[in-house]
Design a protein around this nucleic acid. Structure first.
Lengths: 354, 354
DNA sequence: CTGAAAGCGCTTACAG
DNA sequence: CTGAAAGCGCTTACAG
């Protein structure tokens, strides 16, 4: 068992400064004017005892926590980096601390993040069951969803991106410019909405070009390097014929490229490979990855903004849909812009129609 | 102001189930046997009211939190991904929840993570001032340091890696195999211990080969893509002459490569570039990056293990120094192993002497 | 400007 | 097996 020396409490400080605990609390919070000399004594006592108020007690006594929580399924893949950056920046701007928990859905009686230790929550796809969302909705606890539609018809604000159009633009490009007809699509993790919408974009683009949908070209990539690697290897082994791969996201694209190379296929000569997200590394791959740029960081910022409105008792936007852009580089078969890869020269095509 | 409907408390449940709150607490915690029928009634009430105990109250009343905290300066750069993975895995194995906060040192009276809401803390370099560490040490609150030596002579356990030997191996390779003499070193962020040790490795290697240390070859790379990019551009503009760059870490190596390319330099023909860490993408760069493999994920796991010992009142290892390995790929000037890049074929050289 | 006291929602000896 | 009550460390009306 742990034996830690008991930290000082507000009573110790009060004793030391010869005032009541109420007064200590007041200089701590600056809620009520306190006599200068008294305040000075209290501060001296605080310093001397090295007193730090216990968060738990404060929260119990009804104070706001000034922190927001972020619930993630896991922090893996390059995707989360810009998202975290945006959220951190947003939280900082709004004057909130940020606490992050990556969770595999677990025992609801023991949530590490919730109304007991935060003023509001950001919830990313797949990190929570609907019951918990419903409960928060019921007690009017501020929650904003990322890349995920709320269950039932709970009106919880959502921030997400133009997945469908982004995917469709990508597939259109492969078909129209590079004459591809047999395009593999690698799905993301089970229940991941981004994946569902990208699949729809894929199908719609096929339909527009009267290309028959072929089930055998759909497989699971898990938005993950390793899983995509294995899947593509398997498709190769099974002799499935294809001339392009839409890997679902950039991480999976890396795995796909690796598998294809290992099998001796040339990219983009034999097979074109495209991703989604435009993670920082996408442009440094060789061939440089053609992909869709998702404004991931901005999604994070905006989510905090909406959450802040909720926490202030204001109304938030029900749905914020952020634009995606086609980023054409080399892995689709287009020629390199120049020897010097200049990001500014990437061709950008916006996903907003018209 | 926020008006949330008040969530049910343990008293409501007690009323509903017609028992005392003590009994409710018992079925909640399973601490004392409770009559089956009573328990069933209580559980029914809990379900009906959708009751979730308030963490803050539990903690106040003296329960352990079953969660550990991780303090980081920021989650940026590809480095943190494997570290987080290791820590998450470690926490999960040890049966703890993990809460993460990335912080710029702020107001000590308002720490988002500490003894009030965790049972122990993992602290990464640069995320905290020494005072706070000293305070925790004083109250015997379990803390483990990552990549950072404790201040003064507080005996706080540390997990870190063989930075010096790793760097020395890298520089030795550049000098001995590729005949480099003017090697740039890009420092990491201010106060970052990894950077300090890597600098020492760099200098020692130079000394061994009787190469005079040249101040003008040292600059700041910040362990960051963008910062390294700017720095190298500047060195080029200033006409500083060099035949190799040790970028400090892999992220910075990417920025360095970008700047050199933009200036028309060929890598590794004109300038060799090497990194440190071996982040997942290092092998996919072109040329594939020569670097030092740091067992980042394992550092995370081990840190949690040591922390768990502390939290159990056991003694922890004062210093855990993890081995690094030289990973020779192409960016140093070595020939590619084969067209098919196989990780297993990378040449590995361990940092442990003898 | 300051203090005494109630209350936040739990847990846990102590009795029974 | 179960309940009454004290206590965890704060905040905040309510008086003065």
């Amino acid at each position: 068992m742990i034996r830690r020396k008991k930290p000082p409490t507000i009573s110790h400080v009060a004793q030391q400064a010869k005032v009541s605990i109420a007064t200590v609390s007041r200089v701590l919070n600056g809620t009520t004017p306190v006599d200068d000399k008294t305040a000075k004594r209290v501060r001296a006592a605080i310093n001397k005892l090295n007193f730090v108020p216990r968060h738990a007690a404060r929260v119990l006594a009804g104070k706001r926590t000034h922190t927001i929580g972020l619930l993630l399924p896991e922090i893996s893949g390059a995707f989360f980096q810009p998202m975290l950056k945006g959220i951190e920046a947003g939280a900082h701007d709004a004057g909130y601390d940020l606490l992050i928990h990556s969770t595999q859905i677990h025992d609801p009686s023991h949530r590490p993040l919730g109304e007991h230790n935060t003023d509001g929550l950001l919830v990313f796809t797949n990190s929570l069951d609907d019951q918990e969302l419903a409960r928060w909705h019921r007690i009017k606890f501020p929650v904003v969803l990322l890349h995920q539609t709320p269950p039932d018809s709970l009106n919880i604000p959502v921030i997400t991106i133009e997945n469908k159009n982004g995917a469709a633009m990508l597939i259109n490009h492969l078909i129209e410019i590079h004459g591809k007809r047999r395009i593999v699509f690698l799905r993301g993790p089970e229940g991941h909405e981004d994946s569902v919408w990208r699949a729809r974009g894929y199908r719609e683009a096929l339909e527009i070009h009267k290309i028959k949908f072929d089930h055998s070209l759909i497989a699971s990539g898990g938005f993950d390097d390793e899983e995509a690697f294995i899947t593509i290897q398997q498709m190769l082994t099974n002799g499935i014929d294809f001339d392009a791969v839409f890997a679902g996201d950039d991480d999976a694209a890396i795995g796909a490229i690796r598998a294809l190379r290992m099998a001796g296929r040339v990219i983009p000569g034999d097979v074109a490979v495209v991703g989604f997200d435009d993670i920082p590394f996408a442009r440094y791959l060789s061939p440089a990855l053609t992909t869709v740029r998702a404004p991931i960081e901005e999604v994070g910022r905006e989510a905090v903004r909406q959450l802040a409105r909720l926490m202030n008792g204001e109304q938030a936007e029900a749905l914020t849909l952020m634009r995606t852009e086609l980023v054409i580089r080399e892995s689709c078969g287009c020629a390199p812009a120049s020897t010097i890869s200049n990001p500014l020269q990437d061709e950008l095509i916006s996903s907003t129609r018209r």
